[in-house]
Design a protein around this nucleic acid. Structure first.
Length: 617
DNA sequence: TACCTGACTTAGGAGCGGAGTG
DNA sequence: CACTCCGCTCCTAAGTCAGGTA
């Protein structure tokens, strides 16, 4: 996808040190204008929520008996998953055409045709791979006669199906309030019935209680399987997991479950195997649940333990850069990247099954370029590869001489497509890490570096610009972790709108200024006329108002531009120990609602409960 | 040891609704 | 009142990692 290619050209200076925040200071010096603060104060954050009442007394829950090894719960009862509605056949006046002729499709073929028709506005349907995959799978759903007739996708006319879909979407948008309310209430009833479970005496929200509806597979990037049919899941495909002695959920009328099991060493309530990739899908609890909360807390505790031995580990891998064993040297360089650049581990992937993306251990020679000297720095490594979700990682990083020499060595006599770390894989790396500290894996470094960066930045930044400081720190972490987003579809348009608004205001300002000058002149003529004096005041105000509005809009434009391709949410939700933010809020007397929305507060309820102002990550 | 798979976390995008604005 | 914009929720793909198996 074209949208996957961004250029976040961040150059960082590493010198001889390891810590990621170098990146951060760069970002800070570059990104912001001081006056943005005023603006941010004005827009604030969304809605202030009513005072937060935690669902849990976490301090108390923490005292609840811990179960023996591997046991996740003692009691689990739920209603099973909610299934999507059955397919509704096309009305008689909507036709599919092949080669110009109306063809009445069988129900199965018609349903799949509609999946495609609904996506006609999407870029996917212009892609060769998508079209071919779709056509292949669609033909499998056809009857023999249909398959004999329909042999060429380009002769298919889905126009009427597409138009029907567009009409439906429009109609839904145009619905009146009452009808919308009816639908909303019906949805709420489904949530009430299926959206909760009982787990060890607590009523918990389920995260995804709905079975994924059928459709065409939408992989990310150049996915070789894009367009394949994602089949409708039947109760007969679903495994139910619940507690012995609980009420077993009823399958839909006329159906049975694939299996009912009672496994309390796992956290899922139901699972099925998805047909495109053959992987398992699960129904699990909401992040606000005790089970997930405890796990989250554990994750950050492991990262905090890393803090206490990270110096030792860094020393160790610096030593290993000189190792006689090639595998140890490769491990050391990989670890250096993971630590300093917050790269992901990079498991091997089956070729041809997924888009071609890499992480640290799976980097290939073609993904880095070495420069003895570049832009005033020695030993620069240029990274350019597609990471998770086909998000481009582009970075030019000065590294130590020793790392640089090793990289040269690793690249000797290799083709661009060869593995950079040919002796290394994530298993080996993680095995080594866990020997250095129990529970340590590659991804802990991301959590650790993200959280410590937030904490340091918050400490460094002045208290005067509270909220702005927080956002800056958050943004620094997002840059570190390479959390990007596609610029909103309407980005250029809305940017242009904003610019033209600014232009209009500028003209108004010019006008207002000249009117003011005129008014002032008149006053000079008849100095004591109170009406004229009032006019001058009015004109002054008008000028001032214009200037303020221009300033505000310019800040808005800058802010929007800076955030164009940076996503803050991912790090906030997954990498930043919430206790850092909560303690900061308390110390700075910033209401928590300014930082976390409702579901974030729910997710971090455990941290809200336990965090004192003196918390240090 | 390599390989496979299950379980769980991390990820960006779509779509919706409500607030702000003219 | 219509329209735009933006944050939130939902959705599900795509990672990580460990444990079992050949």
């Amino acid at each position: 996808m074209a949208t996957c290619y961004f250029n976040l050209s961040v150059t960082i200076k590493l010198n001889h040190c390891h810590v990621a925040p170098f990146l951060v200071s760069f970002v800070f010096s570059k990104l912001y204008l001081e006056f943005m603060f005023n603006f941010l104060l004005q827009i604030q954050f969304a809605v202030a929520m009513p005072s937060f009442a935690s669902l849990w007394n976490w301090a108390c829950l923490w005292e609840e008996a811990k179960y023996e090894d591997g046991v996740k719960w003692k009691f689990l009862e739920h209603k099973g998953p909610h299934f999507p509605p059955e397919y509704q056949p096309l009305p008689d006046n909507v036709h599919f055409y092949y080669n110009g002729n109306i063809v009445k499709l069988s129900l199965a073929a018609e349903e799949v045709a509609l999946f495609y028709a609904q996506m006609l506005d999407h870029e996917y349907t212009t892609k060769e791979v998508f079209r071919n995959n779709f056509f292949k799978d669609w033909r499998k759903e056809m009857t023999l006669e249909e398959r004999m007739l329909i042999t060429d996708l380009s002769k298919c006319d889905f126009g009427e199906l597409h138009a029907m879909h567009v009409e439906k979407v429009e109609a839904r948008k145009a619905m009146n309030k009452e009808d919308k309310l009816v639908i909303k209430e019906a949805n709420q009833r489904i949530v009430d019935e299926y959206g909760f479970c009982m787990l060890d005496n607590h009523r918990e929200r389920i995260g995804n209680f709905k079975i994924e509806p059928p459709g065409l597979f939408r992989g990310r990037g150049e996915h070789p399987k894009q367009g394949y049919l994602k089949k409708r899941i039947q109760p007969e495909d679903v495994i139910i997991n619940c507690g012995k002695g609980s009420r077993v959920p009823e399958p839909p009328a006329g159906h049975r479950w694939k299996e009912v099991r009672y496994d309390n060493t796992v956290t899922w309530l139901a699972s099925w195997t998805e047909n495109v990739q053959g992987s398992c899908k699960y129904i699990m609890l909401n992040p606000s649940s005790k089970l997930k909360g405890e796990k989250d807390w554990e994750k950050y505790e492991v990262a905090r333990r890393l803090k206490s031995c990270v110096d030792r580990i860094r020393l160790q891998y610096q030593q290993d850069l000189k190792s006689k064993q090639m595998v140890n040297r490769q491990r050391a360089v990989a670890l250096y990247f993971i630590d300093v650049l917050a790269l992901r581990a990079g498991n091997e992937k089956e070729e041809g099954e997924t888009a071609d993306t890499v992480g640290c251990c799976s980097l290939r020679v073609e993904h880095i370029t070495l420069y003895d000297r570049l832009e005033g720095s020695d030993c620069v490594v240029e990274f350019d590869f597609l990471g998770k979700d086909c998000i481009r990682y582009y970075n030019k990083v000065p590294v130590t001489k020793r790392v640089f020499k090793n990289l040269k060595l690793f690249m000797e006599n290799k083709e661009p497509g060869d593995d950079l770390f040919d002796r290394l894989n994530t298993g080996l790396l993680n095995k080594h890490l866990s020997s250095l500290m129990p529970g340590l894996t590659a991804k802990v470094f991301r959590t650790y570096n993200a959280s410590i960066t937030l904490q340091e930045q918050l400490r460094k930044l002045t208290a005067v610009t509270k909220l702005l400081s927080y956002n800056r720190a958050n943004r620094a972490v997002a840059v570190l972790c390479n959390h990007q987003r596609a610029p909103p579809k309407t980005f250029d348009q809305s940017m242009a709108n904003l610019q033209s608004k600014i232009e209009v205001r500028r003209e108004q300002l010019t006008l207002a200024k000249s009117e003011l000058t005129l008014a002032k002149k008149e006053v000079k003529g008849h100095c004591s006329d109170s009406k004229l004096l009032a006019l001058v005041e009015r004109k002054k105000k008008a000028v001032q108002r214009c200037e303020e509005q221009i300033m505000k809009m310019e800040v808005q434009a800058t802010d929007r531009e800076e955030n164009k391709q940076i996503a803050l949410g991912t790090s906030k939700l997954n990498y930043l120990d919430p206790r850092i933010s909560i303690a900061w809020c308390k110390n700075m007397e910033v209401p928590l609602e300014k930082i976390y929305n409702k579901s974030q507060r729910d997710k971090f309820a455990w941290a809200v409960d336990m965090t004192q102002t003196d918390f240090i990550f």
